[in-house]
Every structure is written in structure tokens, then in C-alpha cells.
């Protein structure tokens, strides 16, 4: 554990909590891509199956349980409790375009051709692109509520901090996991355009809206 990883995990947690609170407090999931949230629930489920096979630390177990629980709670709020506010027409990204290629890639490029390892690899690849339906939705509607942009910022920040974590671990522990690193770089790059808009607009008090 190093400072980058800890702050990365906390940033990830902050993103998840911000989204849940936003939906709960406003009693609305307008502007939120339910499809991205389904993908994140799938990511956590396939990655954390090792909860059943190995114990790493108390911290590790608790965080995994929180992530999984929050992911399913978010999906529940969007598709069940506040279904009436869900903007399905603008959430039109086709999930199979992500899940199928990612599944194929996980079977081809992995550390070990075993069931749990392939699911772990699948989750890593899928996480790197899981935000695309949300970004696609924002590009379709041309705007995002400020609280939604905070959510996206913390979600992007988490992966960026993990990049520093991997640099740290490479230098001080000689550890590197090429699959996680490449997927993490891809994931962070996907947020770059958004980071730019966040800094130039949202942090200056303006709403995030894209030019027509």
C-alpha cells in the first residue's frame, strides 16, 4: 500500500458515493447512463470473485464488498426505484459492442488461461471502457449536471492515481502487471478530454455543456 493507491481507492469510493447520493437526494437519475452502471457492476462482480477463494486483507475485503454493494445499489436505483426518471432514449450505447470484444480479448491476452484469471482480465479490460456509454450520453445531450461531472472527475482521478501507484510499485517493489497498466492507461486517456472540460468550465463555476 502506498499513498497513490490509497488515495486512488478513496477517490474511487468518493465517485461511487457521490453518484449514489446524487440519485438518492434528487430522487432522479436523469443524465446518468444506466448502461455504464451495469458495466461497472459486471466489472466488480467478475473481478472480486476471489473474495470466495483468497483473503488478502481486511481492508481489501471490506472495500470490495462496498464497491460491489454500491454498484448494485446504483443499478437498482436507476432501473427500479427511480426508473421513471431514467433517460433511456439518450442512453443508447450498445453494450454488446463493448462486452463481446472485451470478452474475446480477455480469452486471448491473459496471464493464465483459468476461469478466475480470465474473469479478472475481462473485468480489467471492461473497466477501461465502461464509462463510454456515460460519455456517449453526455455527447448526445450536450451537457451534464455539475454533480455528474464531479462523479466523473473522481472516477478518472482514481485511475490516474493508480498509474502513479504502478510507477511507485515498479521502482520500489519491482512489481508490474502489464495487463492492468495498459488497460489503466487506456482508461485514463478516455478521461483526458473530460478532465480538460472539467478544469476549464466546471471548476470556474460553469455548467458543463458542449458546443452545438
Amino acid at each position: 500500500m502506498n499513498i497513490f493507491r490509497l488515495t486512488g481507492d478513496l477517490s474511487h469510493l468518493a465517485a461511487i458515493i457521490i453518484l449514489l447520493l446524487k440519485i438518492w437526494k434528487t430522487r432522479s437519475c436523469a443524465g446518468i447512463s444506466g448502461k455504464s452502471q451495469i458495466l461497472f457492476a459486471l466489472v466488480f462482480t467478475t473481478r472480486y470473485l476471489d473474495l470466495l477463494t483468497s483473503f488478502i486483507s481486511f481492508y481489501n475485503t471490506i472495500m470490495k464488498l462496498i464497491y460491489i454493494g454500491c454498484a448494485y445499489a446504483t443499478v437498482y436505483l436507476i432501473y427500479m426505484k427511480f426508473k421513471a426518471t431514467y433517460d433511456g432514449n439518450h442512453d443508447s450505447f450498445r453494450l454488446e459492442f463493448l462486452v463481446v470484444p472485451v470478452g474475446g480479448l480477455a480469452c486471448l491476452v491473459n496471464h493464465d488461461f483459468s476461469f478466475l484469471e480470465i474473469l479478472w482480465t475481462f473485468s480489467i479490460y471492461l473497466e477501461s471502457v465502461a464509462i463510454l456509454p456515460q460519455l456517449f450520453m453526455i455527447s448526445k445531450t450536450g451537457e451534464a449536471e455539475t454533480i455528474t461531472t464531479h462523479y466523473l472527475f473522481f472516477l478518472g482521478l482514481y485511475r490516474a492515481l493508480y498509474l502513479f501507484n504502478w510507477i511507485w510499485r515498479f521502482y520500489f517493489e519491482g512489481f508490474f502487471d502489464m495487463i492492468a497498466i495498459v488497460a489503466g492507461v487506456v482508461q485514463t486517456i478516455l478521461y483526458c478530454d473530460f478532465f480538460y472540460l472539467y478544469v476549464t468550465k466546471v471548476l470556474k463555476g460553469k455548467k458543463l455543456s458542449l458546443p452545438a
Binding site: 476471489d50 470490495k64 496471464h111 501507484n165 502487471d177 502489464m178 495487463i179
Partner: peptide, 10 residues
């Protein structure tokens, strides 16, 4: 790169 170890990151 490690195969037989656990994935300790979240």
C-alpha cells in the same frame, strides 16, 4: 507479471 499470485489491487 504474475500468474500464481493473488491480485491485491482493487
Amino acid at each position: 507479471m504474475r500468474v500464481d499470485e493473488v491480485h491485491d489491487e482493487l
